[in-house]
Every structure is written in structure tokens, then in C-alpha cells.
Write a protein that binds this DNA or RNA. Structure first.
Length: 774
DNA sequence: CAGGCCACTTAGGACTTGTTTC
DNA sequence: GAAACAAGTCCTAAGTGGCCTG
């Protein structure tokens, strides 16, 4: 069953699972990996993925036979493995075969105009190839435009946002949800409500006034991120509190008093006992190995088998604590909340170029057990407690340098204004760097975000040329160029990620475009009435399964056949290509162009096109919002942004359906009552009866509206079951498209963006006019 | 180039808070 | 006022891609 109504979306973008198994999450796909093969990059033992592993919910446990078969296969694959170096081979026999095939001239699926998709329905993709008004919104233009508008609209001195607010007040007599008075003891008087509203508006205005309008300022010279930076340093988690005396750990049935370090690790494990993780061998083994490192010699001598460990009492204590926290009184919760607010107030902000900016993650990550995603080889390893001695601080020389906690020292204090982080450390599980950085609504993040969309808009100007070129390159004599062309075709058409090389044995086995292996695709000359279908089945970022059946052009199909020739499942599909080569090429075509820009570009352009196609001015607001969500959803499907269906999905859907049904009954009743009233009115017209009719009419109308709203909600929710809209909204969709749409459609921005999102996109909210065009 | 390091963006799930409904 | 549900926030893992060195 399709989760998304594809008919609403152009064929080009959506080839999601015809068979219906498409897009299922497979983050916990089973299958043991073959042995570790040193720390070589890239090549890794492969899993049986493409052979049709069912989604996790349906997947049967692998039996032993299968496991044996697999390891044999793995070994063969390993034997066949070559180290991937980027070669430049000339295609000889294949080339001949390819060029001499007359087929490619008449391929239906590859019209000359370069439109490689839409032909399926005979529908032509309209691509706005004419240049947009201005690709870059320079600050001066912004200012000028703003000024002009202000004059034109005779806005008061405070600027256009106030006007907006006024409009809002008129348009939306209903206060925002959060502004609604608490349904408290006594009803507040109208005046009080009004006063509260005014106060809220005033506070908003105040906030607006304080907002740093960095987008109206000159940019710094290249590489400089700030001129002054001051902060308080990171906030450390509380020290470990040993278990109470009545809670014991047992080994082999006997109570054992553990040393603090070992006990803390035991608690980490016990806390996770109700989680699937603790049943996995890899997790258990990794944990046990690391736990033993924390033990004293005696403990290590005694505790040799995790299966003989009994964490029951610790687990129950933990459960009780969780419960107790839940059962806390309002007052107690309030106290905690206030304490947390104080911490945020103290540590959550920094001073950047004399503006107070919110820090994104000012808290040091607490110790615990590493929870990798999917089949992560390091899951269960102990994530150590960080000390100030592990932390590097970055701030201005002349600033108030943060004090380390008493009795401690920082690892280093540096003053590097070419980076955006305030503190950093090396994490012990993967050995990677971690950073404390600013919030998404900060200048540093916002400016970068804006820049990202400007690069994507520049791509719009030359994308057709690039497409023409890579279609040409499909015929190249050089294998590396052909592979580059096919990879680019996938990246552009399917919005695949670049696919950097990964260190084997260090992370879960996931791939992107350049790291695809032969086993990840299957070629079908004919499938479901389509020709030249490529079936993708692989785990991408975060072990999210990408499953898709895509008709491709004959040339691409043929090339894939060539690439797969004489290779085994575990071999790289693009053995003459990697991301660095690809990106170098892309950058040569356009400054700033890399593989990921295609994702941003295609996501944003899809949103813009979908909005244009789906939404109508005459719709009411809920209908417009449904259209917006559908456009957003088209992007999420394109980018394969999935989520686990909410646990309560079926139930809440059923509830909603029940509500719809009962409302339907109400509507029917109201209608018949109206009919009756009308009849009575005809027989004896008097003003009382007239009033009754009017009243009934209103009831019917209200019922209809409510029903419509609920039905829209049901549709929206059903279509959203396994799709996550947030990721694309936050990372791929140029906010100016949404802002302009809201203005054009007269939809309040609050319906699309919540407070946090409006903050993050403040630059776009402020500068976008109705005529914005991506 | 390869390979490592570094900085930064993108990502889904867990957890918390707010709202609605009974 | 509690339960159910939705929305919003937090958390940190997992990507991308630049740069440097040899």
C-alpha cells in the first residue's frame, strides 16, 4: 500500500516502491557481519540485502544454515575484492557494443530535450530556466527593498513586522493557542484577556526589537567567524551518586559490592534492560569488555560472565526513580524547571560580537553506553565521563575566560576566530571530535544556511547544462567519466547522498551513491509494465532503508550492466569513482557546487513546484495546509526521510475515524432537522421559524466544516505515517519559498512554522517578499 | 591521489511539555 | 483531574566535504 498519493507528484521525483514494501525502516536488519578485515577503508563484507530481506517487522530470524551460507558468500566476496583506486580505464569492447547499438537513438525514455522523466505521462516538466530576479540577496538590496516597501505601505516607524502583527490581530481574532487563558477556576473577563493579549504582543515586539538583524550587516572577510566571543564554558553533568545500601548487584546469586566506577557502568547497563539493545550479542559483548576495564582486579577475577550478572535490583530501583519523577507534584516539578532555567540562563548563552546568542548544546554529554544506529559494531561500548581536562575552550583573548570547575583545568584554551565552536573534545568510542556550538537561530548558523540556499539557487541557473553534459558523458570512452555520469544521474534524479567512504568495522554498513555496491541494485529490463527498471535496496544514513524501483534511460541501464560485469555482490558499483573526485568535478562546473547541493536544490525546487500545482487561492486554510503538507511530503519522500510509525498510530487513527463517524451522524441529523424546519417555515412563515431555520443552517454548516477539517486531518495523518516532514523543512527547503507562499496564500506563517522554526528562519521571514522565486 | 583530521550539517528517536478529551 | 495524544525540544549519532601532509 502506498503511503503517499503519487499521482499528486510528478513522476520524475517519485519512484517509491511499486511493490509496496518500499521505504520500510530496516534499522535493525539482522545478519551478522563477516569478520573484521583490518581497518581498510571502503571494502566491507556485505550483507544479504538486495536478495529481498523483508522489512524488519516481517523479517524472519535467520536460521543457522543461512548464516553459514552467508559467511561462505562473504569469504568469496572478500577473496574477489580489490582495493578501490580511481582508475581511468578506456572502454573498448563495451564501448563498441554500446555505440553500435542503434537502440539508444530511438529510446523512448530519453527525449532530446533533456527531460528524462516526465515523458512517462506525456506530461512535460516545466522548469523555470529563465534567470530569477536576483540570485543573491545582497544586504543592500534587502535594505533598499525594505525601505521602498515601507514607504509604499505607509508603515509606522517601527517597521513592517508591526504591521504584520496588526493584520494578524484583525485577521485572527482568535489568539494563538499558547495565548489562550488557562481554563482556570474562574472565567477571565474580556478585559483581562485583552490585556493579556496586548502584553503578549508587546513582549513579541520587544523581542523583535532585540533581535540581531545580522542579515542587514556587512559580512566579515573570508574565514573570520567572529571578532569577539565570550562564554561560561560547558555545563558538566552531576557526579555519580553511588547506589543506596539496599540496592545490590548480584553475581552468580551472591551480592557483590562494586567499586564506584564499575558500579556506575553496571547502572548504565541496568537502566537499559528494558531496551532491545541489551539482548543483542554485539551490545552485550562490547559492554562487558568495557565494563571489565572499569573493574578492580578482584572484580575482574570474579566477574567473568555477563549472563551470571543480576542487575534486577538496580533495574527496579531505576524504574522506581523514573516513576517517582513522573509522580512528582506540580510544585516539585516547578522547582526543577526553575533550576533548569537558571542553568540555561547561566550557561546557555554566549556573547558573540556583542550580541547575546543562544548556545545549541551547552551541556557536556553525560557518560553512558554507546547507542549506535542499526547494526553498529561499537554499540554497547562505554562512553566515558568527560573531565574539564578533556575539553578545549575557544573564546576571545580579551574576553572573560571561562573558569574550569574547582580543582580542574581545561585541556587548552585557544582563541581561533576562524571556527564557530566554543568548546570541543574527543569522544572515546569513535575517536571523533565533538563540539559545542551555537543554536540554529544564531547569526553563525543562519548566515551559513542562507548561503546554502543561495548556492542551490545558483545551481538552478546551470543545472540544465550540467544535465546535458552528464547525459553526454554516459557515452564517454573513459570508464571513470561514465561512472561519474551515472552517479550524477542518480544524485540528481533520486536525491541520493554523496556516499563517502567509511572505515570498515567502525560503523554500521551503510552506503550512499558513490559507495553503492553491486548487491544494492538489481536490473530489470522489464518490470511492472516499465522498461529498464533499477531496483535499489540499501541502507543509507542512520540505517534507513532506501527501497525504490526506478525506470532509467536505456543508456544508464546499459552502463549499469557494464559496471556490474564481472563483479560480485560485495564489489563497488562505481569502482572508478569516489566523492572527492565527483565533488572536484562539480566544483569545476560551478563554484561551491558539491553533491549535496543537488539534494538542497531538488528539494527546494520540488516544494516550489508542488506548492504551485497543489494549492489554490480559493481553498480554505485547512485545505491550503493540506496542500502545503503534501508538497512538503513530496520532498520528504524524495529525500527518503522516514520515521518509525508512532506507537499509538493505529489507535489514534481509529479514534479519529470514530470521531468522524459520529460527526457524520450529527451532520445527518442536523440536515434532517433543517429540512423539517424549512418545511415548517413554508407552511407558516413567521420570524420565529425563520430564526430556527437560520440556526439549523448554521449548525449544518458548522458540522460540515468540522467534518471536513477532521477528514483532512485523517488524510494528512495517514499519509504521514512513516514520513517525517521535519527534516526537510529544517534542512532542505528554502524558507523563503514557504514565507512567500504564506503571503501569497494569506496563510498565517504560524501555521507552517512554530516559534523555534520562525526564529531559525528569521532572516527569511524578514526579507522575503511575495514575489520571491527560488 | 590516499588518508587522516577537522568542522560543520543532517538525522531520527527519546524525552518533555502542552492540549484536548473524557 | 487524569489519560491520551500531539507538538515541541533535546540529544547525540552519522553524514558531507575541506584542507593538509606525505
Amino acid at each position: 500500500m502506498l503511503r503517499f498519493s503519487h499521482s499528486q507528484v510528478r513522476e520524475r521525483w517519485l519512484f517509491v516502491g511499486v511493490s509496496g514494501s518500499g521505504g520500510n525502516k530496516l534499522s535493525e536488519m539482522g545478519g551478522e557481519k563477516g569478520g573484521k578485515n583490518g581497518k581498510t577503508k571502503r571494502k566491507r563484507p556485505s550483507k544479504e540485502l538486495s536478495s529481498g530481506d523483508a522489512p524488519r517487522s516481517k523479517k524472519p530470524e535467520k536460521d543457522e544454515d543461512e548464516a553459514v551460507k552467508m559467511s561462505e558468500k562473504d569469504q568469496k566476496r572478500k577473496a574477489s575484492r580489490k582495493v578501490k583506486t580511481v582508475k581511468t580505464e578506456t572502454l573498448e569492447s563495451e564501448m563498441e557494443d554500446f555505440v553500435s547499438t542503434p537502440g539508444h537513438v530511438t529510446v523512448k525514455a530519453e527525449p532530446d530535450d533533456g527531460d528524462f522523466v516526465a515523458e512517462k505521462k506525456g506530461k512535460k516538466r516545466v522548469r523555470e530556466s529563465e534567470p530569477t530576479e536576483a540570485t543573491a540577496c545582497s544586504t543592500s538590496t534587502v535594505k533598499k527593498r525594505k525601505k521602498m516597501k515601507e514607504e509604499k505601505e505607509e508603515v509606522e516607524a517601527e517597521g513592517q513586522r508591526n504591521e504584520k502583527k496588526k493584520k494578524k490581530r484583525i485577521k485572527e481574532p482568535k489568539p494563538e493557542k499558547s495565548e489562550q487563558p488557562v481554563s482556570s477556576k474562574r472565567k477571565k473577563t474580556k478585559e483581562e484577556i485583552e490585556a493579556a493579549k496586548l502584553l503578549k504582543i508587546k513582549m513579541k515586539e520587544e523581542e523583535e526589537k532585540q533581535r540581531w538583524r545580522w542579515w542587514e550587516e556587512e559580512k566579515y572577510e573570508d574565514g573570520v567567524k567572529w571578532k569577539f566571543l565570550e562564554h561560561k564554558g560547558p555545563y558538566f553533568p552531576p557526579e555519580y551518586l553511588p547506589l543506596p545500601d539496599n540496592v545490590k548487584f548480584y553475581y552468580n546469586g551472591e551480592a557483590v559490592q562494586l567499586s564506584p566506577a564499575a558500579e556506575e557502568a553496571a547502572l548504565f547497563f541496568a537502566q537499559m534492560l528494558d531496551h532491545d539493545y541489551t539482548t543483542k550479542d554485539v551490545f552485550r559483548n562490547n559492554f562487558f569488555k568495557d565494563w571489565r576495564k572499569e573493574m578492580s582486579l578482584e572484580e575482574r577475577m570474579l566477574i567473568t560472565d555477563l549472563n551470571k550478572c543480576d542487575f534486577g535490583e538496580i533495574f527496579r530501583m531505576h524504574q522506581e526513580r523514573v516513576q517517582a519523577r513522573r509522580n512528582m507534584s506540580k510544585e516539585e516539578k516547578q522547582v526543577i524547571k526553575e533550576a533548569n532555567q537558571k542553568i540555561v540562563e547561566d550557561y546557555g548563552f554566549c556573547l558573540l560580537d556583542h550580541h547575546r546568542e543562544r548556545i545549541g548544546n551547552f551541556k557536556i554529554e553525560p557518560p553512558g553506553l554507546f547507542r549506535g544506529r542499526g547494526d553498529h559494531p561499537k554499540q554497547g561500548m562505554l562512553k566515558k565521563r568527560l573531565q574539564p581536562e578533556d575539553i578545549i575552550i575557544n573564546c576571545s583573548k580579551e574576553s572573560n575566560i571561562p573558569q574550569p570547575p574547582a580543582g580542574h583545568k581545561w585541556k587548552e584554551v585557544r582563541h581561533d576566530n576562524t571556527v564557530t565552536w566554543l568548546a570541543s573534545w574527543t569522544e572515546n568510542v569513535q575517536g571523533s571530535c565533538k563540539y559545542i556550538m551555537l543554536n540554529a537561530n544564531s547569526k553563525l548558523k543562519g548566515e551559513k544556511d542562507w548561503e546554502k540556499y543561495e548556492v542551490a539557487r545558483r545551481l538552478k541557473g546551470c543545472v540544465e547544462q550540467i544535465r546535458t553534459q552528464y547525459k553526454q558523458d554516459l557515452k564517454s570512452k573513459q570508464m571513470s567519466i561514465r561512472q561519474r555520469a551515472v552517479a550524477l544521474y542518480f544524485i540528481d534524479k533520486l536525491a541520493l547522498r554523496a556516499g563517502n567512504e567509511k572505515e570498515e568495522g567502525e560503523t554500521a554498513d551503510t552506503v550512499g551513491c558513490c559507495s553503492l555496491r553491486v548487491e544494492h541494485i538489481a536490473l530489470h529490463p522489464q518490470l511492472d509494465g516499465e522498461q529498464n527498471v533499477v531496483e535499489f535496496d540499501f541502507l543509507g544514513k542512520d540505517c534507513i532503508r532506501y527501497y525504490n524501483k526506478v525506470p532509467v534511460t536505456k543508456r544508464v541501464f546499459k552502463n549499469l550492466k557494464i559496471f556490474m560485469n564481472n563483479k560480485q555482490g560485495g564489489d563497488d558499483l562505481f569502482d572508478c569513482l569516489n566523492t572527492s573526485v565527483l565533488n572536484k568535478y562539480l566544483t569545476s562546473l560551478m563554484a561551491g557546487l558539491t553533491a549535496k547541493v543537488f539534494r538542497t536544490y531538488n528539494a527546494s525546487i520540488t516544494l516550489q513546484e508542488q506548492l504551485k500545482e497543489l494549492s489554490t487561492m480559493s481553498d480554505n486554510v485547512p485545505e491550503k495546509l493540506l496542500s502545503y503538507n503534501r508538497a512538503n511530503r513530496a520532498v520528504a519522500v524524495l529525500c527518503n526521510h522516514q520515521r518509525a510509525p508512532p506507537k499509538t498510530f493505529e489507535q489514534s487513527m481509529a479514534n479519529l475515524q470514530a470521531k468522524i463517524d459520529s460527526r457524520k451522524e450529527q451532520l445527518a441529523l442536523a440536515k434532517s432537522e433543517l429540512k423539517q424546519a424549512k418545511k415548517e417555515l413554508v407552511s407558516g412563515s413567521d420570524s420565529k421559524l425563520q430564526a430556527v431555520v437560520e440556526k439549523k443552517k448554521k449548525t449544518v454548516q458548522r458540522c460540515e466544516e468540522q467534518l471536513l477539517r477532521m477528514e483532512i486531518q485523517a488524510t494528512d495523518r495517514e499519509e504521514n505515517k512513516q514520513i517525517s516532514l521535519g527534516t526537510s523543512k529544517l534542512n532542505y527547503l528554502d524558507p523563503r519559498i514557504s514565507v512567500a507562499w504564506c503571503k501569497n496564500m494569506e496563510v498565517p506563517l504560524e501555521k507552517i512554522y512554530n516559534k523555534t522554526q520562525r526564529d531559525k528562519f528569521a532572516w527569511a521571514v524578514d526579507m522575503t517578499e511575495m514575489d520571491f522565486f527560488f
